[in-house]
C-alpha cells in the first residue's frame, strides 16, 4: 500500500500514456488521433515535472537567507527541457491540424476509413 501511495503519480502518468496511445491506435477519427497524441505528449511532460518535484524547496534563484545548499532549491533543468518540448509539441499539433484541414477540404471527411476508401477510388 505504501509502495502505491509513494508512487501514485507515476501510475497516473502511465495511465495517461496508455489513454493517449489508445486514442492514436484505435480511434478512427483523425482529429481524435491528434487528441490522443496530445494526451500522450502531456503525460511525458508530467513525467519530467513529477521527477523534478522537491517538497520544501524554492525556485532556483539565489536567496541570501537560504544560502547555497542545493537541497533548498529546485532543479530547473527538467522544467526548461519541458518548456522546450511543449514548444515542439505545439508545433507538431499545429502541423497536424493544418494537414487535417487539407484532408477535410480534399475528401470532405476526417474518418480514416472513408478517406482511405476515397483515396483508392479517386486514384
Amino acid at each position: 500500500m505504501e509502495f502505491f501511495i509513494g508512487r501514485y503519480s507515476y501510475y497516473l502518468i502511465a495511465a495517461l500514456l496508455v489513454v493517449g496511445l489508445y486514442g492514436i491506435t484505435w480511434k478512427r477519427n483523425m482529429l481524435k488521433k491528434v487528441i490522443g497524441m496530445t494526451v500522450f505528449q502531456t503525460a511525458i511532460y508530467l513525467f519530467f515535472i513529477q521527477g523534478a518535484t522537491k517538497i520544501g524547496a524554492t525556485i532556483p534563484i539565489y536567496d541570501p537567507e537560504l544560502g547555497l545548499d542545493p537541497v533548498d532549491y529546485l532543479n530547473p533543468l527538467p522544467h526548461v527541457m519541458i518548456l522546450t518540448a511543449i514548444v515542439v509539441g505545439v508545433a507538431v499539433t499545429g502541423i497536424a491540424l493544418a494537414l487535417l484541414l487539407r484532408i477535410q477540404r480534399a475528401y470532405g471527411s476526417l474518418d480514416e476509413g472513408t478517406v482511405i476508401r476515397k483515396m483508392r477510388e479517386g486514384r
Partner: peptide, 8 residues
C-alpha cells in the same frame, strides 16, 4: 506525423 510524434 502520428508515427513520428509517438517515436519522438
Amino acid at each position: 506525423l502520428i508515427f513520428g510524434a509517438v517515436g519522438g
